[in-house]
Computed example of a mutant assay.
Amino acid sequence: MSANAPTPANATAGRRYRGVSNEARKTERRMKLIDAGIRIFGTTGYHAATVKGICQEAGLTERYFYESFANAEMLFTACYLHITDTLKARLQAVLLSMDDEGLAHATATGLRVFFTQFKEQPEAARIILVEVLTVNRHLEELSLKTLYSFVDMLETLARPLIEQAKQGNKGEGQSAHLDSTLLASGLVGSVLYMAARWALDGCRQPVDHVVDNAMLIFTGVGLSLLGPER
């Protein structure tokens, strides 16, 4: 190849700096912006945030912001998905480790994971409980879709209990009308509103106290389905 020939695009993309590829550095910068976005959006709010302020928080220039995001809305969406994907992964790990005899323990562990994330990162609580509803219709729909995904996860817990209750009552009376999706939706809704109130108060109460209160709701449902002997 001639010394004056242009460098192929794939060669430029593959260049390394101090042993780190361009793509790896871009990914690292993107994550810095997401971390900064969570801090800014979760403290000042989406509508008060600026690209300049987020870049200053991340220690990057605006050039690198637009390398990964077209605007603040796209960054907010990435922040929201990072928070909820992390939370879902942790909750799924709890579900995968659950056994039939440890349902109450698994439920309490899942609730503890949920509330602990908000305790350790109150900015995340504001983003997924408040700010996501103020941006635009697209983010509202994303929030609803995410809510349904949590309902689906909880339904995996509720469905066996409902089926057992129906069989025990031979499909008669109140048990005949039980719906695992509706029941899971109600449980998720109660936990979210509890989390919102707790976050509004600055997460002052210990996580274990909040979990104990939430477990009263889940225990009440379990007793209604299976009776006190369970």
Rank of each mutant, 00 (worst) to 15 (best):
E123D: 14
Y46G: 04
I40T: 07
A89I: 10
L91T: 05
H177I: 10
T12R: 14
N10V: 06
E229G: 05
H105W: 06
L60A: 03
V221D: 02
L226D: 10
G102Y: 02
I40A: 04
G14I: 06
E23A: 15
S2Y: 14
T134W: 00
H82M: 01
R137M: 13
G202R: 03
N169T: 13
T107D: 00
R197S: 02
K52G: 13
G59L: 08
R230V: 15
L91K: 06
N213F: 04
L157M: 09
V130N: 02
T86F: 04
R39G: 04
L161R: 06
L226K: 12
D85S: 09
T134H: 05
E120G: 02
Y148D: 13
S149T: 07
S68V: 08
I162T: 14
R159A: 14
T43I: 03
A72K: 15
H177K: 12
H177V: 12
K145E: 13
A176K: 11
L129T: 03
A5Q: 15
I127R: 07
R197P: 01
A158H: 09
L95R: 06
D85V: 07
H209N: 03
I127Q: 01
Y80P: 00
H82L: 06
L226S: 12
I38T: 09
F76H: 07
R197I: 01
G168C: 03
R18I: 13
Q164A: 14
N22L: 06
C55N: 08
G222H: 12
M31W: 11
F150E: 01
L96K: 15
K170D: 12
G189F: 08
R25Y: 11
T109H: 09
R90C: 10
Y80M: 08
P122V: 06
K26I: 10
A13K: 11
E140I: 15
K52Y: 13
A93T: 03
Y17A: 03
A196M: 10
A11F: 06
V207T: 01
F115W: 00
T7V: 15
K88S: 12
H105F: 13
H138G: 11
F114W: 12
N136F: 08
G102S: 14
L103H: 09
A24M: 07
L161F: 05
L192W: 05
T116W: 00
T84C: 05
L33K: 08
T84M: 07
T134C: 04
D100S: 09
K52Q: 14
P160Q: 04
R159T: 08
I40D: 01
V211N: 02
I54A: 07
D179Y: 05
T86P: 08
G42N: 09
D99Y: 11
T27F: 11
R137V: 11
F115Q: 00
L139V: 15
V130R: 03
N136A: 14
L178I: 08
S97F: 01
D212W: 00
